[in-house]
């Protein structure tokens, strides 16, 4: 065989296929820790109610504001409810609302960002102004306004947070799409007459998926942050839920009297959950950049 005709050697054997994202993730200690914490709270949210020693809603006027003890590991609150049970079950509502809101905003934000980045022009210009306008306000304030107008309930919190995050995700996706839009494979698609929807969803979307994945995990952390905050100021999850933010709101007036256990454990629960989710998000970002 001659030199010219000999095909270039197969490189598929030389370059091993990239390891899957999952296997790159489990090699990161921060991912393992973050995932363990997150899974713990997800477990509490699903199975907690069946496992806890006391009914988290049952009041006991004889045993109000008891400090932590063998009977009540985290003490009792001003109505005599067992705080340990409430903390465990308290994961449920926030871990329902925040992920659903994230899912909603990621779906809508992705569609918005794809359209803005792909079509550009006047549409992009107008939508960008709208996005800028909404992003000029803190999420908590936007949510506060919408919840004041609509009335606070668990469902409205879900939708309000879902919609509030659309512009942020849209902006991230748009930036990622714009850098893809300039690549020649998009021109190649035009040169075989693909319709815009195909180009957007089949050609471009897979290449911006990593960015969307990172954004979604980061956003989940903030959704938890925001739901907790809104619950704390009374515009989020409503009583009698054992939600952590809500419990802190109803008890923080007591800490001047030394009843620290009524807020500390709920606070730590929120802190560990958001840190766990953020460790996961950070690891995903790191693993994708490897």
């Amino acid at each position: 065989m001659t030199a010219t005709a000999a095909p270039e050697q197969d490189r598929t054997t030389q370059k091993s296929a990239p390891r899957s994202l999952a296997s790159r993730l489990v090699r990161r200690p921060s991912f393992v820790i973050g995932a363990a914490i997150t899974l713990f709270w997800i477990g509490c949210a699903i199975f907690g109610a069946a496992l806890v020693p006391y009914d988290p809603f049952e009041t006991d006027v004889m045993n109000t504001l008891m400090p932590p003890s063998a009977a009540h590991w985290f003490g009792t609150d001003d109505l005599g409810r067992d705080i340990f049970s409430r903390v465990i079950v308290g994961a449920r509502d926030i871990l329902t609302v925040a992920p659903l809101a994230t899912l909603l905003s990621t779906a809508l934000g992705t569609a918005l960002g794809l359209a803005m980045g792909y079509f550009g022009g006047v549409f992009d210009e107008v939508m960008s102004r709208l996005v800028d306008a909404i992003l000029a306000l803190p999420t908590v304030v936007v949510a506060l306004l919408a919840l004041t107008a609509l009335g606070a309930s668990t469902t409205t919190v879900l939708f309000v947070i879902g919609f509030t995050y659309v512009p942020i995700i849209g902006r991230t996706v748009r930036a990622a799409v714009l850098s893809e839009r300039g690549l020649d494979y998009v021109s190649a698609a035009e040169l075989r007459r693909e319709n815009p929807l195909y180009t957007m969803f089949v050609e471009i979307l897979p290449n911006v998926m990593p960015a969307i994945l990172v954004e979604a995990t980061v956003r989940l952390g903030y959704a938890i942050f925001t739901v907790a905050t809104l619950s704390f100021i009374g515009f989020g999850i409503q009583p009698p839920s054992p939600d952590w933010g809500l419990s802190i709101a109803s008890s923080y007036g007591l800490i001047g009297g030394g009843y620290w256990w009524t807020v500390l454990f709920d606070g730590l629960a929120i802190a560990t959950l958001v840190i766990g989710v953020n460790l996961v998000a950070d690891s995903v970002q790191g693993a994708l950049n490897d």
Binding site: Y185, A188, E203, P206
Partner: peptide, 17 residues
């Protein structure tokens, strides 16, 4: 459209990864 096609300069940009 099909009569005219192009081979781009940079295959990393021209091929969808």
């Amino acid at each position: 459209v099909k009569a005219m096609q192009i081979v781009f300069q940079n295959p990393d940009s021209a091929l969808n990864r």
